[in-house]
Computed example of a mutant assay.
Amino acid sequence: MGILKELEDVDNIKLSKDKRAVIIIDQTKLPGITEYLTLTTVEEFYEAILKLRVRGAPAIGICAAYGMYCLAQTIDTTKYEAFHKKFHEYKEYLNSSRPTAVNLSWALNRMEQVVLNNKNSTVKEIIELLESEAYKIQWEDIEMCRKISKYGLTLIKEGDGILTHCNTGQLATSKYGTALGPLFLGKEKGLEFKVFADETRPLLQGARLTSYELWKAGIDVTLICDNMASVVMKNGWIQACLVGCDRIAANGDAANKIGTSGVAILAKYYGIPFYVLGPTSTIDVNCKTGDDIKIELRNPDEIKKEFYEKPMALEEVKCYNPAFDVTDHSLITAIVTEKRILRPPFDSSIRKLFEV
């Protein structure tokens, strides 16, 4: 019951009391409005993930897991073959919503594996097992974030200036977060840090979400434009960069929100350690290098119109709007997982991480 109580305390994403819907905070409305959405249909789940109403690699995976459990309850058949066929259709549809974050496909595949492993069970029994698996995925995320936060905290010290990009706190996970986790854990222990949060264009996750979470936690946070990162580094105000990840290749190349690779290049120039923090579920050992990571391209209007009263560019002007970029492994000081801190050469340390 302790596990279920802790899951109930999670505010940003949870199963409804009747267990037939998923309740999320609409992150597109923050920080000005805190609005909860109730998702029940496959179209609602797809739209919520695509439109970043739920975002952050771990949170997307948790939402998808709960979503598949809820959708499984709507499949009107007692025949295994028909049930699995429809379940697979739902899974593939949701998987197409955002191709870069590996946690989405990881969670969906894990839920489908429950169905595949229980061909001789009744549909009712399979649905009960899916509920249990979804709970496990969220509980494991909480435990992973705790461990990542503990490891990450060993890499920084009180009074350090920390630069972060995008949002990697509790809104992106279930508790603590990944790259922000060490800061929240440190705050609990009475440690103080000075955080500089990139605004993270074009969707401003750093401005809307990271600065909001840090300020609420009582952590000293200063919001900066993305193109100010080099200035605060040059001024000597940054002692470490902490960023999250949506997919890590087998060689250590890491995909994260667009702009991350630029931060890594600057950090390398100024001799500042650059740490990537994320659960092992974001490591894709079947992806050899960052060149093999499919980068999501989003609507050009996010650059020209989002958050503006009127368009900031002519309608005729073309826009290139990738959601992510890939930071080369040579720019990464260490990768922090829930199992251990990985050091270069990453192809070797990642391989050893998964050795039985």
Score class of each variant (00 low, 15 high):
Leu4Asn: 11
Leu4Arg: 14
Asp9Thr: 05
Asn12Val: 09
Ser16Cys: 04
Asp18Thr: 06
Ala21Glu: 15
Ile23His: 04
Leu30Asn: 06
Pro31Ser: 10
Tyr36Glu: 14
Glu44Phe: 02
Tyr46Ala: 06
Ala48Leu: 04
Leu50Phe: 13
Ile60Gly: 00
Gly61Leu: 03
Ile62His: 04
Cys70Lys: 06
Leu71Pro: 05
Asp76Tyr: 05
Thr77Cys: 08
Thr78Asn: 13
Glu92Arg: 12
Ser97Ile: 01
Trp106Leu: 02
Asn109Trp: 01
Arg110Asp: 15
Asn118Asp: 06
Asn120Glu: 13
Asn120Ala: 04
Ser121Tyr: 14
Ser121Pro: 00
Val123Leu: 01
Glu125Gly: 00
Leu130Glu: 09
Ser132Met: 09
Ile137Cys: 05
Ile137Arg: 02
Gln138Lys: 08
Asp141Thr: 13
Asp141Leu: 10
Glu143Trp: 00
Ile156Tyr: 05
Glu158Gln: 10
Gly159Cys: 07
Asn167Leu: 09
Thr178Ala: 11
Ala179Thr: 11
Pro182Gly: 07
Pro182Val: 11
Leu185Met: 12
Leu191Gln: 11
Glu192Val: 07
Val195Tyr: 01
Val195Lys: 08
Leu203Cys: 03
Gly206Tyr: 06
Leu223Thr: 02
Asn227Val: 01
Lys234Arg: 14
Cys241Met: 01
Leu242Tyr: 09
Val243Met: 03
Ile248Gly: 06
Ala255Asp: 10
Asn256Pro: 07
Asn256Leu: 07
Thr260Gln: 02
Ser261Asp: 11
Lys268Gln: 13
Tyr270Cys: 06
Gly271Phe: 13
Ile272Gly: 05
Pro273Met: 09
Tyr275Ala: 01
Val276Tyr: 12
Leu277Asp: 07
Ile283Val: 13
Cys287Met: 08
Thr289Asp: 07
Gly290Asn: 03
Asp291Gln: 13
Asp292Lys: 12
Arg298Trp: 05
Asn299Phe: 01
Pro300Arg: 08
Pro300Phe: 02
Glu306Pro: 00
Glu309Cys: 00
Ala313Gln: 06
Glu315Ser: 11
Cys319Lys: 14
Ala323Trp: 00
Asp325Leu: 12
Ser330Leu: 12
Leu331Arg: 02
Leu331Glu: 03
Phe354Glu: 09
